[in-house]
Design a protein around this nucleic acid. Structure first.
Lengths: 328, 328
DNA sequence: TCGGCGCGTGAAAGCGCTTGCACCCCGCGA
DNA sequence: TCGCGGGGTGCAAGCGCTTTCACGCGCCGA
């Protein structure tokens, strides 16, 4: 089913059909009716490829993220899709997961869209540059900045400081950070906030304990830390909620009470954080808004409305529950 | 950057450039090297639109789902993307959320892909027919079947029966089902399994209690049921985990013990189900595999390898935790 | 010596759409 | 009566690729 068949059916040229569909240019009422009827009868849906080629645009955006399991990325993606759809753009997704060949997948994606959001540490800087060099607008999400490229991220440092201060006020002194500051700029900032406060209060921060972003990883690492003969940490500050939930399990297995024997905090405020017992103290991020912002920033760039790079930082909120100490 | 510029740079025709890129047809070693060098120097990435138009394929698939919040859909989508990428296809997503204009969005999506997965009760049957009539292969996921269209779903009836039997064996008699059997074929089957077992055992099943698929909704409905002066249900069988978690909250608010005063079960085995206290008895579905299967079924259809409609049903597993009664 | 066969290459015809430009025709004012 | 303007329409030139066919050229066997 092509525009030619519609034109033939309606007895007009394809130009006229195009004009009717796009409401560009004048068409006589009667002609329009004939065309519309033909479109309807033949159930004509124009080919996006033909249209895209002629218009030189895809009317689609892409987003690259590490994974969708865990509520964090999913929420951001859904926020992104919501706004993108509103702006008349389809959304292509690419999960890098731990795949090889990320570069070629990203470049392929870039050739299918008008703009690309790159989320977290999924793509190397030089590949980002390559995409930018292709002339594809890029917005970075929760990722270290690259010169001249828009960035949207959430506040980390201040919240981490606030969390650290809260723990210290509870009397905890031996704090351990579970997560790899080199794995993402977010994690790095969280660690910086924590270690900064400790140093200011005259406590020498313990080296961060490398830990993958998963419950299994958190559990293993926490078990090791908590079963230490001496110098057992009084509080585990985890880089995200999944690690913290794993740590909670580890404590339970070792018959340690939380927060009595050890305090535990997470980051993200995922659903399970609220249902865990004790409830997990954590930091809430506006995940949907993060995605929505990215979609809008990208749209501005695609429309060419803005040239200067933009760097938004969204506000976060410490959520105190009982895993970090008893409260009234 | 187009194939023409690459051809000019290498001093060959675009035909040769195309052949080098696709490794179709013979090219002399030296010529190939010149072309590859030109591609590299000019950082040429072929236009998907041009290629797609010529090949008459998109090398992309779509998926339509209600929402991505909650782990269920996200997991399925990620399983889908994983397999689709492996098969060399990009993935376009469309969340219907509670949007108007679903039909036109779906038709637009259909015009951008080689095949489409429609997930849950997002799209009306007549629109599905319309997509099929466009010649776009469709696979339905966890959705009522449509004639001639592939369907992938998970087992519901047997697991629901098993769950019901388990509750009855615990001595519970007054069971209430929270969820709307008319909202999806999955829910309908779960209700059918429950009510079937009750009837067989001579217990007259109570009408299902309509309830949205959310924690808030579950909480409200459960609070109403549990605060009834008399005839309070002894067990709440919830259509999914989020409803069940809401019910758990309601019980807590009313100072009822779970499972002592009331048993509660969910469905899906989301992460929070495991962390809730008491742990939530539920039914686990192979969510990633659900998505993966859909991707493969779609691929077969696109490749034209199969004509007959296929109806896969994936196995599910009842997960007994403590919310349904004390166990050893 | 000559016909034929492959290999290497390019011209050109699409693929399905948008859009600049030209054309026709009618109504109006001069 | 003629000229002009504008509404209505279509022609045709792209957009960036793939692929069919045709062509030229060495090399082989007869």
């Amino acid at each position: 089913m092509t525009i030619y068949q519609v034109a033939a059916h309606a007895g007009v040229s394809i130009t006229t059909v195009s004009r009717v569909m796009r409401e560009s240019g004048p068409v006589a009422g009667e002609t329009r009716d004939r065309v519309l009827e033909a479109i309807d009868t033949l159930r004509f849906v124009p080919s996006r490829l033909g249209r895209g080629l002629a218009e030189r645009r895809h009317a689609a955006n892409g987003i690259v993220f590490p994974d969708l399991s865990g509520p964090y990325y999913a929420e951001v993606v859904v926020g992104y899709e919501e706004v993108a759809a509103e702006l008349g753009r389809s959304v292509l997704i690419l999960s890098t997961h731990g795949r090889e060949a990320v570069r070629s997948r990203v470049l392929d994606l870039a050739s299918r869209v008008d703009g690309l959001v790159i989320f977290g540490r999924t793509v190397r800087d030089d590949v980002v540059d390559e995409v930018v060099a292709m002339g594809v607008p890029v917005v970075l999400l929760a990722r270290t900045a690259v010169a001249g490229v828009d960035t949207i991220s959430t506040e980390n440092l201040a919240s981490a400081r606030q969390l650290a201060a809260h723990l210290l006020d509870h009397g905890h002194r031996r704090l351990a950070f579970l997560g790899d500051p080199e794995s993402s700029s977010d994690t790095a900032a969280r660690w910086a906030g924590l270690s900064g406060v400790l140093t200011e209060r005259g406590i020498r921060p313990r080296q961060p304990v490398r830990c993958g972003f998963s419950e299994a990883s958190g559990r293993t690492v926490a078990r090791r830390l908590l079963s230490a003969a001496r110098g057992r940490p009084q509080a585990l500050v985890c880089a995200d909620d999944e690690i913290a939930l794993g740590a909670l399990l580890a404590a339970e297995e070792l018959s340690l009470s939380v927060p009595g024997d050890v305090a535990i905090t997470g980051w993200d405020d995922i659903m399970a954080a609220r249902y865990a017992r004790p409830g997990l103290t954590t930091v809430r991020q506006p995940m949907r808004e993060l995605g929505g912002r990215a979609a809008r920033a990208l749209d501005e760039r695609i429309a060419g409305e803005r040239v200067a790079a933009r760097h938004d930082v969204l506000h976060t909120e410490v959520v105190i529950r009982s895993s970090c100490g008893e409260h009234d």
